[in-house]
């Protein structure tokens, strides 16, 4: 599991690679910390290379969204595959995130 964060104009784009499961969650939580400090920026969670997300991964996404809201930022989740979309739907979070 790997996370890359790049700045794209007024956006911060975090790209996730691999499986965001319980084992990977601690390292990923550390890697996404710069997103938690972003104020008034759009945060894009690019999931085009993310294969799987567990509850631990959902908690990380929720944490990012909560902190972003506190800082006046907006979070967009992009390019999720069918399985991850289903996870978002089954847990009821699909209407909570802006998913593109």
């Amino acid at each position: 599991m790997k996370t890359e964060i790049v700045t794209d104009g007024n956006r911060l784009v975090a790209k996730f690679y691999g499986r965001l499961d319980t084992a990977a969650a601690v390292q990923t939580a550390e890697e996404v910390k710069p997103l938690l400090e972003a104020a008034n920026k759009e945060i894009v969670l690019d999931c085009s290379e993310l294969e799987y997300i567990s509850s631990s991964g959902l908690r990380i996404f929720l944490g990012i969204r909560k902190e972003a809201a506190n800082h006046g930022s907006n979070v967009v989740v992009r390019n999720i595959n069918a399985d991850i979309r289903q996870v978002f739907m089954m847990t009821g979070f699909i209407s909570f995130f802006e998913i593109q």
Partner: peptide, 18 residues
């Protein structure tokens, strides 16, 4: 039926209404 075969242990409060 959806969740029984998963280990998803975090849900949103919209799951019921949805």
């Amino acid at each position: 039926h959806q969740l029984g075969n998963t280990d998803l242990d975090i849900l949103s409060s919209s799951v019921g209404i949805q």
